[in-house]
């Protein structure tokens, strides 16, 4: 009986691993002294995770889940409520729309597609930041974070695929 309950719990846990991994990355990104050491700007890892799981998870993300995760990020970073959910939803919409075409492509092509999708997302983020602050937001920090996000994608992809294989998500 105990085995059945723990097995069911484990099965349920496995189902929410994508959401948990995004939540973990959201919290990691706001730690005062984070793993990126002295850098003031760190890669937007949760965006890469949303892209990865939108393509690779069995079944789909629920839009509500992505909105909740985005709102948690907004609360922690202090952005206007709804800012990060929009970015997550854009990545999710594009990647799930092109899922069938992208999934079987070699990794360097997926990486290229991610750089395009995240580029568009950062453009939207820059536009919203400028709109919210009613002034031109310098594009430099956005470009730096975009480059860092694209560069760090293979490592995160490897890590998440490892988790996916191990837990059979």
């Amino acid at each position: 009986m105990r085995v059945v309950v723990s097995q069911r719990l484990f099965e349920s846990f496995k189902k929410i691993i994508p959401e948990l991994s995004i939540l973990f990355l959201v919290i990691l990104s706001v730690q005062p002294q984070n793993i990126f050491g002295n850098s003031v700007i760190s890669p937007f890892l949760c965006l890469s995770a949303v892209f990865y799981w939108s393509l690779h998870r069995q079944g789909r993300f629920y839009v509500v889940t992505l909105i909740i995760l985005g709102v948690i990020s907004d609360i922690l970073i202090g952005a206007s409520l709804g800012f990060t959910p929009i970015l997550f939803l854009i990545v999710f919409a594009i990647s799930s729309w092109q899922k069938k075409n992208v999934l079987l492509k070699p990794f360097h092509l997926i990486w290229g597609i991610f750089s395009l999708v995240s580029g568009l997302t950062f453009l939207v983020a820059w536009a919203i930041t400028s709109f919210v602050s009613l002034q031109y937001a310098g594009s430099g920090p956005f470009a730096i974070q975009y480059i860092m996000t694209v560069i760090s994608f293979p490592i995160l992809d490897w890590l998440l695929s490892h988790i996916q294989r191990t837990a059979a998500v």
């Binding site: 990104s29 706001v30 005062p32 990126f36 970073i77 202090g78 952005a79 800012f83 983020a125 930041t129």
Partner: peptide
Amino acid sequence: RVVTHSGGPFVKSML
């Protein structure tokens, strides 16, 4: 103490 610190270009705030 600082609890959270935004590390992105969108907003610069901390809790």
